[in-house]
Amino acid sequence: RPPTDRERAVRRAFREAGLRLKEQPDFRGWLWVHFVSDAGLFSQGLRLGSLSKLAGATRDLREGLLAGRELLPLLKARGVDLRRHRGGVMLFRAPTWLTALVLAWLTAHFEPVRANFAAHSDPDAEEPREVCRDTLAEARRLGIAVPRLEAAEPSFAREVTG
């Protein structure tokens, strides 16, 4: 449908502020793609003790990518049309030997990517654990097999207090 007057005003304000707009027609699906992408990588970072330890770690990044690939059926089960998000899921559909190698190089040599990983490296932060717990709970609820995420569960499971 055509944008409302308010939507046009917001777009104009962003443009006048010098920002370029990139709109997502399926914002909910876009968020889900990023959520499971984070879950795949977070699961391996938490397993190592910190997401920053994934920087340059080809084998561990490969496991994170494979964990993300195992979550693609969860997206489908949630109603996400993966064809609309080709760019977002390409990282998980491409050969992991190649994507892990490229990602390892980027995390080791490209400061903005390394800084992104470092920003999620607080060992006491709950966000990565919650993302993994929520994703695993949803996969279990929908009967989606996610063996890599399940294998990493001890790294993000809630501690049982007695």
Rank of each mutant, 00 (worst) to 15 (best):
residue 154 P to L: 06
residue 6 R to D: 12
residue 146 V to M: 02
residue 68 G to F: 08
residue 126 E to Q: 15
residue 75 L to S: 03
residue 91 L to I: 05
residue 56 G to A: 09
residue 40 G to P: 10
residue 98 L to N: 00
residue 80 V to D: 07
residue 100 A to V: 03
residue 129 R to S: 08
residue 146 V to P: 01
residue 138 E to Q: 14
residue 109 H to R: 15
residue 132 C to Q: 11
residue 78 R to T: 01
residue 32 W to R: 11
residue 50 S to L: 05
residue 55 A to S: 13
residue 95 P to N: 03
residue 159 E to G: 13
residue 61 L to G: 07
residue 156 F to H: 10
residue 34 H to M: 07
residue 117 F to L: 12
residue 45 G to Q: 05
residue 36 V to I: 11
residue 138 E to N: 01
residue 20 R to P: 02
residue 154 P to G: 08
residue 143 G to P: 09
residue 72 L to H: 06
residue 97 W to I: 00
residue 62 R to E: 15
residue 125 A to G: 09
residue 27 F to A: 11
residue 140 R to W: 11
residue 148 R to Q: 08
residue 129 R to H: 10
residue 105 W to E: 03
residue 139 A to V: 07
residue 144 I to T: 04
residue 86 R to H: 08
residue 100 A to S: 13
residue 2 P to N: 12
residue 125 A to W: 10
residue 112 P to M: 03
residue 30 W to G: 01
residue 153 E to R: 15
residue 75 L to M: 02
residue 61 L to E: 06
residue 12 R to G: 00
residue 135 T to W: 08
residue 69 R to Y: 08
residue 63 E to H: 12
residue 125 A to T: 09
residue 31 L to T: 01
residue 10 V to I: 15
residue 105 W to A: 12
residue 15 R to Q: 13
residue 21 L to I: 14
residue 25 P to C: 01
residue 54 L to S: 05
residue 19 L to I: 12
residue 161 T to N: 03
residue 1 R to N: 08
residue 90 M to C: 01
residue 57 A to Y: 13
residue 105 W to K: 05
residue 8 R to E: 09
residue 159 E to L: 13
residue 150 E to Y: 08
residue 144 I to S: 02
residue 24 Q to S: 12
residue 52 S to G: 10
residue 111 E to P: 14
residue 149 L to T: 09
residue 31 L to D: 00
